[in-house]
């Protein structure tokens, strides 16, 4: 990539040559954004509230998988200190462990956030603004607490150490690694499960009913508090899954890892139309692609990608103020 050293700007021809690789990077990023965006959009649907602490649910889940490996002393047990790279069943075992731990921590922490930061306010009929402050407060409190008293940063037991990136195949000349495939397929499976859950199941019907008219839902016998709790739980599970997929690519977890992911995922939800499940998925993938294309077009710097992503958001909202697919809260087809 000699062109990259020219003060950051790439020729258009250079961009074309990097188009497919950056598309794959973008899809991987977008898959993570999309899953986290689901948490924002679901909670917004039932409460009309941006749960800023969703990004911290993501962060806690990311740490969770590292801690699980550390606490269980997985590398020592498996190799007695030898080559950390695992294959076959050992690798699948580690991945499964991390996934389960991430998802459980994600679900639990989201439920705790709802119980501690929001439900008490709801019971006292607090004004909307108070919820917002509580959301921001919860986010900072969790992140800073982990930074101050918690693990702050962990890389010793990063998933990437056990996991050897292997090129599986090429798409238009771009290398596709096993890690890419796991992330995209994993995210697609989780997203599909969620869409089916919301559109087909009884609880999903309850979630949509509350999203469309919470008061009426209550009078029809829907236990709204329970539905809200489940919504947080499901959003947390998605954030947990996203954290696991993120860790496959990222060699560390840090107390502030949720911040940028959270902002992007929230942006993705707004881009697609907040409250709209399919919108969050579309927004996430688009945002990942735009960010990745942006950084390969204008230079390798990550910040340029961010600029491209947010400029796109502003442009889209100028034309479609309610997002690409609109704020169709709880639409029948999710």
């Amino acid at each position: 990539m000699a062109t990259l050293s020219f003060g950051g700007f790439l020729t258009f021809a250079g961009f074309l040559s990097r188009f497919w690789p950056s598309t794959i990077t973008g899809l991987v990023l977008g898959a993570v954004y999309a899953l986290v965006a689901l948490g924002y959009t679901l909670v917004y649907g039932v409460l009309r509230l941006i749960n800023f602490a969703n990004s911290e649910v993501f962060m806690l889940s990311a740490f969770g998988s590292f801690l699980a490996i550390e606490v269980l002393n997985v590398p020592q047990r498996l190799t007695g200190g030898g080559d950390p790279v695992k294959t076959g069943w050992e690798l699948i075992g580690i991945l499964a462990l991390c996934l389960v731990v991430s998802v459980v921590i994600g679900g639990l922490s989201a439920v705790v956030v709802e119980r501690v930061a929001y439900r008490p306010l709801r019971q006292r009929n607090a004004p909307r603004l108070v919820f917002l402050i509580s959301a921001i407060g919860a986010s900072f409190a969790i992140s800073e607490a982990v930074g101050e008293w918690g693990p702050q940063q962990r890389d010793e037991y990063a998933l990437t150490k056990f996991f050897k990136k292997q090129q599986l195949f090429k798409v238009f000349g771009a290398d596709v690694y096993n890690a890419n495939v796991i992330v995209v397929v994993g995210a697609a499976v989780m997203a599909l499960a969620l869409v089916l859950f919301v559109s087909k199941s009884r609880v999903g019907r309850g979630i949509r009913a509350v999203a469309q008219d919470a008061e009426t839902a209550k009078l029809m016998g829907v236990n709204v508090d329970r539905i809200i709790l489940i919504t947080f739980l499901v959003g947390g599970l998605m954030a947990g899954g996203a954290a696991f997929l993120y860790e496959i690519h990222t060699p560390f977890a840090r107390y502030d890892v949720g911040f940028s992911i959270g902002i992007k995922a929230f942006t993705a939800a707004v881009l697609g139309g907040i409250g709209n499940v399919r919108g969050a998925l579309l927004g996430g993938v688009l945002l990942g692609l735009i960010e990745s294309w942006g950084s390969s077009l204008f230079g390798s710097d990550q910040n340029i990608g961010n600029v491209a992503a947010f400029v796109t958001l502003v442009l889209v909202l100028m034309v479609r103020p309610s997002g690409l697919l609109g704020e169709s809260l709880g639409r029948s087809k999710a």
Binding site: R208, A209, Q212, D213, E215, T216, A217, S328, G330, S332
Partner: peptide, 8 residues
């Protein structure tokens, strides 16, 4: 009328 408008 207070139906859930987007549901069937």
């Amino acid at each position: 009328i207070r139906l859930f408008p987007d549901m069937t």
